[in-house]
């Protein structure tokens, strides 16, 4: 099994005619994701040319796309100024799961969009995230499909390339994954560590979990408590930003130590205090997981 996406995912690509949207729509189709529709206002009725001669119908609006294709998931590649609007449009159209890839979305826009989506029972992943992949079943977003493999590990991370790094070590060590989720580097994200942990808990195929956090906020600390109280699976954690100076935004909008809160040290302590094994270096993640799976 897997979490959030699988072979039943029917995907709409919002912004399918843009540079990133079209490139990644093809990548997702090549991986085997069932891309059923694209949306670009003003280009309804046109057709998107996918790989191997496959085509995808383009619609002007989300409600048309959902009504015509039975889509249940969407992925957003539209520019920052329109991304929050795209999330709300997807939620209004009845989409269950929205993955917002766009980086640089104004935070107050997302505050409104998250509230709107919550009211409609729509799960949002991101924004400013790489998406997710359930190896062998589907990928939604921009994660490289060739570095994953099916297997027993669930992975959740705030980062992009650091996630790839960890997954790559797992895969080359012969350890596959149920689902790898990039929850995003923004201060306001729709799906947090705890949501992913709860989903992995209900997935019988997930036998161990990797959690990759970074400085800023308290989500890792809350997730650590959740692990202690609710999970029987082994969990391995890693925190980036031990050398980050306070008060500076480290690339990700959410990666900032405010005052003395949100440091890597306090997160690593929370991990250790709650029975999560802490990898000191990225390469140790795979080593610790291998030991945990064998034990």
């Amino acid at each position: 099994m897997s979490i959030f996406i699988d072979e039943n995912t029917r995907l709409v690509v919002q912004g399918i005619t843009g540079r990133d949207g079209s490139f990644h729509a093809r990548q997702m189709m090549e991986y085997g994701t069932n891309v059923v529709a694209g949306v670009t206002p003003g280009k309804g009725g046109q057709t998107f040319e996918g790989p191997d001669g496959r085509t995808v119908p383009i619609f002007n609006a989300m409600d048309e796309a959902v009504a015509s294709t039975g889509a249940n998931t969407s992925v957003i590649y539209v520019p920052p100024a329109f991304a929050a609007g795209a999330v709300m449009e997807a939620a209004d159209a009845g989409i269950d799961f929205v993955v917002a890839i766009t980086e640089g979305v104004p935070v107050l826009d997302m505050a409104r969009a998250h509230a709107f989506a919550r009211d409609r029972g729509t799960r949002v992943l991101g924004p400013n995230c790489p998406g997710l992949i359930s190896p062998g079943k589907a990928k939604v977003g921009i994660l490289p499909g060739q570095i994953v493999a099916p297997g027993p590990v669930g992975l959740v991370s705030r980062s992009g390339t650091l996630t790839y790094e960890a997954v790559y070590h797992l895969t080359t060590a012969g350890i596959g994954q149920t689902t790898c989720v990039g929850i995003g580097g923004d201060p306001l994200i729709g799906t947090k560590f705890i949501d992913c942990l709860a989903a992995f808990k209900d997935d019988p195929d997930t036998k161990a979990i990797v959690m990759i956090g970074e400085i800023g906020g308290t989500d890792e600390q809350e997730a650590a408590e959740y692990v202690k109280e609710n999970l029987d699976l082994p969990v391995v954690g890693f925190i980036a930003g031990q050398t980050a100076p306070p008060g500076r935004r480290m690339g990700h909008a959410g990666a900032i130590i405010s005052g003395s809160a949100g440091t890597a040290a306090e997160k690593m302590e929370a991990f250790e205090a709650n029975g999560i094994q802490v990898a000191k270096r990225p390469v140790e993640i795979a080593e610790l997981i291998r030991a945990a799976l064998q034990g």
Binding site: S157, R158, S159, G160, T161, L162, T163, E165, G185, I212, E214, I215, F238, A240, G241, Q242, T243, A244, R248, M250, G251, H252, A255, A264, K280, R281, P282
Partner: peptide
């Protein structure tokens, strides 16, 4: 480094091996 998370992890690893990073730099994807 490409990517903010990997850039932070790289700085941390420099420190781990007894060095000091001169900067954080994410050159993007």
């Amino acid at each position: 480094v490409n990517g903010a998370g990997l850039a932070m992890a790289t700085m941390d690893l420099v420190k781990y091996y007894g060095g000091e990073p001169a900067n954080f730099l994410d050159i993007g994807g």
